[in-house]
Amino acid sequence: MERVLRDRTAAVIFLGPALVIYVCILLIPIGWSIGYTFFSGSPISGFTFAGFQNYATLVQDRRFWDAFWFSTRYAIFVTGGQIGLGLALALFYHFYLKRSSALIRTLVFFPVVLPTVAVAAIFQKLFAIAPQYGVVNAVFDLIGLHSLVQPWLGRGQTAFWVLVIMDVWRAMGFYAVILYAGLIEIPAETIEAARLDGASGWALAQLVILPLLMPITISALIFSLNGTLKVFDSVVALTGGGPGNATTPLTLYMYRAAFTNNAYGYGSTIAVMLTLYCLIVSLLAYRFARRDV
């Protein structure tokens, strides 16, 4: 028995292919990328050793910090919206719709599986101003709020909010289902007992339900942050980072540095910073959760 389960050749055959692909395409390139950060140049121009020059440039680079703040702002608002509205929806499903919520859950979940490019193209048209008004401007025009008719994606401030609305719209149904699954786990007796003790409405939610839902909410939060800090597709497809650089997150700034300016070392330095940033935020959220629960 032991002999069969400890068969070395078989273990290599089963594990080998996955491990080789994973190490060659994911692990080694990470090390390679860190190596790039100490060089300047590109494969075409040749590399020269630069020490910590890339890191020094990065600290002084205003556009890097703009991108950093954009990513942070985007992550705060989108994650906040996804988890906040997801939670509201989950409570609504569980306490108002009860057993009949399956169809609504399914419909609200749907946009998650849609291709980002298609979603962004729809939102471009919804918020369009030329050559004809999109739905949003047309409706404002119709009800007489002419001052609100504006180039939504043509201004940094409004483009940011369209982006936030789009990504919250797309993913709130996903987080609603996750949190709803957590809600059903709470025993009905617990809620009933709290009700008998006089808790109701907001007090019930605040004192009983939300604390019990905390662990799954934190997991959802970490998952969401991990996605929003790495936002790329939505931005590329909706605004292309513009107008100007107004909606350029770290990922897109890195992409431009690497592939438009051919600065491999600098691009990798941004990528390494981005990775560290995601790791630190996840660890902080995790530590915070551990202390709290």
């Binding site: 395409i25 994911l26 080694i28 390139p29 990470i30 390679w32 990328s33 790039y36 991990n226 790495k230 790329f232 990922t251 890195m254 992409y255 690497a258 491999y264 691009g267 990798s268 941004i270 990528a271 390494v272 981005l274 990775t275 995601c278 790791l279 996840s282």
Partner: peptide
């Protein structure tokens, strides 16, 4: 946890 961006250039 690894963002795609970090392996894009080496790949």
């Amino acid at each position: 946890m690894v963002p795609l961006q970090i392996v894009l250039l080496p790949l």
